[in-house]
C-alpha cells in the first residue's frame, strides 16, 4: 500500500469520530428541526455516490476503448462503492423524508433516478460476479448508462416538480451549518479515496493470483 494510506486512514477515522460533535453543535433548521441533521451524512453520501458513478463510467470507457486492465480494476472497485454510498443515501434519505415530508418515499424524479442509478451499479456488480467470461465488457457498457444518469440525478431537482430540496441549499448554507457540512464532505471524500485504493488493491492481488497459477502450469 502507498505511504499516505496509513496516516490518511487515521485522519479519516478521527474526522468521523469528531463529526457527530460538530453536527450536534450545528443549529437546527427552522422548518424541519432535528431531523434535518441527517443531511450532514446524507448529502456527502449522495455526492460520493455520484462521483463513484463517474469514476466507474470513465474507467469503463478507458477499458473499453484502450483495453487497459488497470482501468477495469478501477471501474470494478468504483462500482462496489457506488452500491455502498448509494445505499447510504437511499436509506438515510427516507429516514429524513418521513419527518420532513410525512412519507418515506416519493416517486419523484430525483428519488427515482437515484434508485435507477443504484440499481445499475448493483447490476454491474452482479454481472461481474456471476456473468462468466466476457462479463467485464458487458459490465463496462452498464457503467456507461450509470454515468449518463449522474448529471440527470444532480440537476433533476432544479428542473422538475419535486419537494426534494434544490441544489442551491449548499451554496446558501449559513456558516454554522456550512462548517460541519464541509467537514463531513471532506471526511466522506477521504473515506471514498481510501476504500477505492483498498478495493483496487484487492483486484490487483486477484490478478497476481491468476498470474501465479499460470506460471505454475
Amino acid at each position: 500500500m502507498p505511504k499516505w494510506f496509513t496516516p490518511a486512514s487515521v485522519i479519516c477515522a478521527l474526522m468521523f469520530a469528531v463529526s457527530p460533535l460538530l453536527i450536534a453543535n450545528a443549529p437546527f433548521e427552522s422548518t424541519m428541526g432535528l431531523v434535518q441533521k441527517i443531511s450532514y451524512y446524507h448529502m456527502p453520501s449522495a455526492w460520493i455516490f455520484l462521483i463513484a458513478g463517474i469514476v466507474c463510467g470513465v474507467a469503463s470507457i478507458r477499458y473499453l476503448f484502450q483495453g487497459n486492465l488497470s482501468q477495469d480494476r478501477l471501474a470494478q472497485a468504483a462500482a462496489e462503492l457506488v452500491v455502498l454510498f448509494g445505499a447510504l443515501a437511499i436509506v438515510t434519505g427516507p429516514l429524513w423524508a418521513r419527518k420532513a415530508w410525512g412519507v418515506w418515499w416519493q416517486w419523484d424524479v430525483r428519488l427515482t433516478s437515484s434508485l435507477m442509478g443504484w440499481m445499475v451499479s448493483v447490476a454491474y456488480v452482479l454481472v461481474r460476479k456471476y456473468g462468466g467470461p466476457g462479463s467485464d465488457k458487458l459490465a463496462a457498457g452498464l457503467a456507461l448508462f450509470g454515468m449518463a444518469n449522474v448529471p440527470f440525478i444532480y440537476i433533476s431537482v432544479n428542473y422538475w416538480r419535486t419537494i426534494h430540496p434544490k441544489t442551491s441549499v449548499v451554496p446558501k448554507l449559513p456558516l454554522q451549518m456550512g462548517i460541519p457540512f464541509w467537514f463531513c464532505v471532506v471526511a466522506f471524500v477521504l473515506l471514498f479515496t481510501l476504500l477505492l485504493r483498498l478495493r483496487v488493491r484487492l483486484e490487483e492481488q486477484r490478478a497476481r493470483v491468476d498470474e501465479l497459477y499460470l506460471a505454475l502450469d
Binding site: 432535528l34 438515510t92 429516514l95 434544490k166 446558501k172
Partner: peptide
C-alpha cells in the same frame, strides 16, 4: 420545495422525540 435551509437556535420540545427515532438509525 425548499431552496435554502434557515437556521434557528432552539428546537420545540415536541419535535425531538420523533425526529431522534429517525436520526439515530440514519
Amino acid at each position: 420545495q425548499m431552496d435554502e435551509f434557515v437556521p434557528i437556535d432552539k428546537l420545540p420540545q415536541q419535535e425531538q422525540i420523533p425526529a431522534a427515532n429517525l436520526l439515530i438509525p440514519a
